[in-house]
């Protein structure tokens, strides 16, 4: 469940929602995994594709588009998107830093990591930097308890974090400048 209230975002730069031919092909392949008439099963995987392709978040337009691909009512996409924490229902930065805050990461210093990033970027958790480069989120257990503390950015896990490693990661992400999404893995080494 998202940490923020589910409201219709007031800003949306896109007016057109259309997957690229390659993404459309991926979507078709995914839909075929489910039996005839059960294409709704593809909703979550397709919302992932939409979030990756449409600027890292799901605007109502993006969700309507996914619903139309699957022959669903828009509300079916909204209610699902608002349930799962990986879907962003408001605009996010180019790189979303998701710091695990649960249990072992907590014991091993997740708070220090969060405070360090907040100080370095001049934002608090939940906010986006004014240049639109970084959004900082705190998230629940990501299954890296043995390599705590950790953060996720796009598909990549950054583990056994030290404050120096965090600095180096942020610098590299900044100089790289590309959007990091779950659906593609392009690891940045630190």
């Amino acid at each position: 469940m998202p940490d923020y209230p589910v409201t219709v975002p007031h800003m949306s730069e896109r007016t057109e929602y259309q997957f690229s031919p390659e993404t459309l092909e991926t979507a078709r392949r995914i839909i075929q995994r489910y039996p005839e008439g059960k294409q709704k099963s593809a909703l979550i995987p397709l919302l992932h594709l939409a979030q990756a392709e449409f600027d890292g978040w799901l605007s109502p337009g993006a969700m309507d588009y996914v619903a139309s691909l699957l022959g669903l009512q828009p509300i079916e996409a909204y209610e699902v998107a608002s349930f799962y924490s990986m879907f962003n229902l408001k605009p996010v930065g180019t790189c979303v830093l998701e710091v695990c805050r649960t249990s072992s990461c907590w014991l091993m210093g997740a708070e220090d990591v969060v405070r360090h990033i907040e100080k370095k970027l001049g934002i608090t958790a939940g906010q986006t930097t004014s240049d639109g480069m970084f959004t900082l989120k705190t998230v629940e257990c990501l299954g890296s308890c043995g390599t705590a503390p950790m953060l996720q950015c796009g598909a990549d896990f950054y583990e056994n974090l030290t404050l120096e490693k965090v600095d180096s990661l942020i610098d590299k992400l900044k100089s790289d400048g590309r959007r990091k999404v779950y659906t593609r893995d392009e690891p940045i080494t630190i």
Binding site: R33, I44, P45, H48, Y84, S85, M86, V139, C141
Partner: peptide
């Protein structure tokens, strides 16, 4: 056999 990804929910 197919892989199906979720989206973050314990």
């Amino acid at each position: 056999c197919y892989v199906h990804v979720g989206a973050g929910a314990y």
